[in-house]
Structure formats: C-alpha cells, structure tokens
C-alpha cells in the first residue's frame, strides 16, 4: 500500500500536472476516470479565476487563445499551481508568463496590460483602512524627516513600457476608436493604481511624482524618499510641492517613527 505522501503527490500530479498519469499506485482505471473529472473541474476553476482577473487580456486575444495560454500557464509557468486557497490570489505570475509566451510574442503590450489588471485585482481585494488627511498625517509625522509613511494596501505603482492604461480602458469599454488611437511607440507610462471610496482608480503620474510616491509607498524614511527627486528645477519648493501633493492625496494610513531621537534633534 502506498504511503500517504505518495498518494498525495500522485493526486497533485493528476490534478495539475501537464499530462494525466495513466498509472497511479493504488488506483484502478475507474478511479482514474473519476479523478480526471476532478482534474478538469480543478483546471476550469483556475481558468475562470484568471478570466475574471484578466478580462481585458482575454478580450484582446480572444477566448480560445486565452484558454490555451492558461492551460500552458498551469502546466509550465512558475506560479501556475495556486499557492493560496483564495482564487483572487491566483495569477500573480500570469503577466510574467505572457511576456515569455512565444505565441503572444506578436503582442508585446499584452503582459503590460496583464500587469495592470493584476494591480487592479489586488487593489479590489486589499483590506479596508482609513485614509488619513494631511492634518492627521502631519500630526503623526511630527515634523520628523525620519518618519516612514504606511500606504493604503490597495496602492500599486507600475512603470510600463506600453500605454496599457489606454488599451485596458478602451478594451473594457469596447471603444474601437480609442483602441485605434493607441500609440504603441509612445513613451513609457507611470501609473498609480488604488482603490478609493468610489472604486479602483488608475491614473498617470509624472516621473517625479511617481518616483516620490513609489519611494514613500516602499516605506523609505522621508529624508531618503526626498533625496534627489528628479524634478525639473530641482529647487526645494518643487520637491515640497510634490510632497504636498502626496500628503494631501490621502494615500497613507499611518506613519512610523524610529525609536531613537532624530539626528537633527537639538536635545541629542
């Protein structure tokens, strides 16, 4: 009789492996037939999860191609096997998979659209938290440049080579004119994706604003986040204006201060 571990490993191969095994120790042909029903159900559930998380990608390539790509993703891609019981957490590697999926090579923007859709999916399911206004935030920071801000969990900053936001919107709204107007050779886009009170927002930011938001959201201390921000004039007023913009956009839910006294504190 096979050990429990062997049975479990064989079961896992039957459900999500590339080919359905024809021989599994301890299982007869009838059991394998029933297991293949389970296998098919399992895979179609994963396919549906990705359909729901990547609706624009599916519309771009059509249903058949999408299904074929997902089958290959399950069989080959790292991340094709779910590692969470929550289906909305499945598919984080799908964009990277598409980037190197030979049949999709003719659509170089496809993986950028997938990255955007994944960020939107993450934003949708991020936990709720109260976004602080600038008065509250300023009191938590207490004038200290070594404070670190805590971003709302829905926020994601993406720098994409293709105008994935325009493509995504046009595809989901079935706006053919907007699709035809997409300029694939335009310069890279820097996006901020977040969920606010009215839903998921996708907006473009200028390079300097995006860089500062990215650093602040990564939890860098303010003094490091502000260091050599690429602004045109480079004056302190410009940097301050950028920071003011970030602080008043209600993107943060708290601030963390280090335990030690700040280097600029006169009492130290």
């Amino acid at each position: 009789m096979p050990a429990l571990l062997e049975v479990q490993q064989a079961m896992s191969r039957c459900l999500l492996g590339g080919e359905m095994p024809t021989l599994v120790p301890g299982l007869d042909a009838a059991a394998l037939e029933r297991l293949s029903i389970y296998r098919n159900t399992c895979r179609s559930t994963l396919l549906n999860a990705l359909r729901l998380s990547f609706p624009a990608v599916q519309r771009l390539v059509g249903e058949e191609f999408f299904e074929g790509a997902v089958q290959c993703f399950i069989d080959e891609g790292p991340g094709g096997i779910p590692d969470s019981a929550w289906l909305y957490e499945y598919g984080g590697e799908f964009a990277a998979f598409l980037a190197s999926f030979p049949p999709a090579a003719g659509l170089p923007y496809l993986s950028d659209v997938a990255r955007l859709e994944w960020a939107v999916n993450r934003a949708l399911h991020a936990p709720d938290a109260e976004r602080l206004d600038v008065v509250h935030l300023a009191s938590l920071i207490g004038g200290r440049a070594d404070a670190r801000l805590i971003p709302h969990a829905s926020i994601c900053l993406l720098s994409l080579q293709y105008p994935a936001d325009r493509i995504w919107r046009a595809v989901l709204e079935e706006d053919d004119a907007a699709l035809a107007a997409v300029n694939l050779s335009a310069s890279p886009v820097r996006l901020l994706i977040e969920r606010d009170d009215t839903g998921v927002q996708v907006q473009r930011l200028h390079e300097a604003a995006w860089t500062l938001a990215k650093r602040l959201c990564a939890g860098l201390p303010l003094c490091e986040a502000l260091d050599s921000i690429p602004s045109g004039a480079g004056s302190r007023d410009t940097t301050a204006a950028l920071l003011a913009e970030q602080l008043s956009a209600r993107r943060f839910i708290g601030a963390r201060l280090p335990d030690c006294t700040p280097p600029g504190d006169p009492e130290s």
């Binding site: 004038g143 303010l222 301050a240």
Partner: peptide, 19 residues
C-alpha cells in the same frame, strides 16, 4: 545631517502647502 535638515524643511513647507 544636511540631507536630514533639508528634508525637515521640505516637509514643513509641504505640509504648509498641503494645508
């Protein structure tokens, strides 16, 4: 030290601007 001091001043200007 300079970086920190400059950041403190930027921060206070920013909060003023935001308010």
């Amino acid at each position: 030290m300079n970086k920190y001091a400059s950041a403190v001043s930027t921060l206070s200007v920013a909060i003023g601007l935001a308010l």
